[in-house]
Amino acid sequence: MEDGQDAKIVVDGLNAWYGSVQALRDVSLTILDRKVTAVIGPSGCGKSTFIRCLNRMHEVAPHTRVQGKVTLDGQDIYAPGVDPVTIRRRVGMVFQRPNPFPTMSIFDNVAAGLKLGGLAPKAYLADIVEKALRQAALWDEVKYMLKRNGTALSGGQQQRLCIARALAVEPEVLLMDEPCSALDPITTLAIEELLQELSREYTIIIVTHNMQQAARVSDKAAFLFMGEDRTGFLVEYGDTKEIFTNPKDPRTEGYITGRFG
């Protein structure tokens, strides 16, 4: 327990823009190492934008801007001279809809980050792929069809394939942007179980608009909200148990009890 209380990512005064529209204002919080942190809040409050700022994916979209400080193990990821590619290898990402590369086999999908990232230790590639698929609890289902196309899998399997793909590059942090929104409830629970397993080794930050899911899977929860100007800001951040039984802010209470938001 004690080692799990270390800070992994420290966000300090984060602001983000799309063009002239400000999406996030002055978000500051500390993400704990090897814990599951849930980011909740109403649609459009900047949840996805927030996590995209943590692996420098926000700047991939045109006309975007980030201001503020984000440190990963004490290193400022927005410092001049920092290559976003190296940050993205340490902070992996799983997206809302399963998005395996349609032109690649299951094996190649998992190996993509290593092969195309120029990190491929050819000899160990098969081992790494197997390990990643095992971590994603997919190995037993696909071990005899690694050459098959990734899109041949079911939705839940595809999402686990995407998780395996992200794990194969051995990141330290895993960002998940509503990873279950396209999945059925049973598959969703399976993915949630997986998160519990993964949180032993990885720091996980999951965006979800499903409050029950946030309550189920996370240790810490951050509640983002937006004002009249549609700019998101952090309302409350704390232990999930506390947030869901005794929130400090009436807006959090209103949102999690379904009264508004």
Partner: peptide, 9 residues
Amino acid sequence: CIQLMATQQ
């Protein structure tokens, strides 16, 4: 018990 009800539905 209350926390379990709140978080695990």
